[in-house]
């Protein structure tokens, strides 16, 4: 497999070390502890507690990085997708939480990370089946994968911002005392982030779907046609996103309604990514590649 030698060599170097002992529990528990500590630091406003929370968050990120480096799960395998997705959100929001004034971002991002880790765990181990990105992906397949993954990531961040928006809007509706409760950015800033996520995700999803459709017609992805649940799931997701974009820019839906729609779209994305792989075997058409 030309091009993967450095990766395989790195994996071989890791063999024989204790890295195979790192499991989902290691980083899952670290993230869970960090979440608890972030919550406690929001209540008590103790700087050292926040420091400990950041430590556990970083420890979880490191453990997950080592797990990914050692097992190298394929990005398009069901669990690999969720693992890489959760890792990216964890790492990016760790950096955001340290540097940004929106210190509460991790209160909202870590539950998403934990859900993704749990989904990866339910999908089972660090399997290599369907490992088209690292092993077999070539040309259009790679673009198809990247477009869908970046679109998913954008929606992940959009969903986090949308949840923060809903909490901020609730605070304002109840006329809470400024400077108390969960520290959040302004409504305007959060709405901007939600909007950005939709603007980035929809075109990428469309590109991913179009490439996937082309591959399907040319049988490049070796899927079982349009009746495959993974293909159907991706199409449903695209329709959902198209409706979301129409509501935002056609019907001028904004604020709380837009935030709720983005959270719903993200939930649907997770379902579409997880459900087809959890269906009974008779529903699947045998394949070597799979869309999330």
């Amino acid at each position: 497999m030309p091009g993967y030698e450095p990766l395989i060599s790195f994996q071989n170097q890791l063999e024989g070390h204790t890295l195979d002992r790192i499991t989902f529990v290691c980083f899952g528990a670290s993230y869970l502890t960090a979440l608890g500590l972030y919550s406690a630091s929001q209540v008590s406003r103790l700087a050292w507690l926040r420091g400990v929370a950041i430590f556990f968050h970083a420890a979880g990120g490191l453990a997950q990085s080592m797990y990914l480096a050692y097992h190298q799960p394929a990005l398009f395998s069901p669990n690999g997708f969720f693992l890489c997705f959760s890792w990216l959100i964890a790492i990016v929001t760790l950096q955001m939480g340290i540097s940004s004034r929106a210190r509460s971002v991790n209160l909202f991002s870590l539950p998403v990370v934990l859900v993704l880790v749990a989904l990866a765990w339910f999908q089972g181990g660090a399997g290599q089946e369907g490992a088209i990105l690292l092993r077999d992906a070539r040309g259009w397949g790679l673009f198809h994968a990247l477009a869908l993954v970046i679109a998913s990531l954008s929606m992940g961040f959009g969903a986090v911002a949308a949840c923060m928006y809903l909490v901020r809007a609730r605070q304002l509706r109840n006329k809470h005392r400024p400077g108390t409760g969960v520290e959040l950015p302004s409504l305007e800033k959060l709405e901007g982030k939600v909007r950005q996520s939709v603007v980035v995700a929809f075109p990428l999803l469309t590109i991913g779907v179009l490439i996937g459709g082309g591959m399907l017609l040319s049988d490049a992805a070796q899927l079982g046609g349009f009746s495959d649940p993974r293909v159907l799931g991706t199409l449903v997701l695209w329709v959902d996103f198209a409706v979301l974009v129409w509501l935002r820019y056609g019907m001028k839906v904004r604020g709380r309604s837009l935030a709720v729609l983005v959270v719903f779209a993200f939930a649907l994305l997770l379902v579409c990514a997880a459900l087809p792989h959890s269906l009974p075997a008779k529903w699947h058409v045998p394949s070597t590649g799979a869309a999330p």
């Binding site: 901020r168 605070q171 304002l172 005392r177 400024p178 400077g179 950015p185 302004s186 409504l187 305007e188 800033k189 901007g192």
Partner: peptide
Amino acid sequence: AHGHVSVSSVAVDYVREVFDH
């Protein structure tokens, strides 16, 4: 020294919770 205690300062605090720029 937490928070503000003048009505106008509290009003500005609320405005800052809604708008960013």
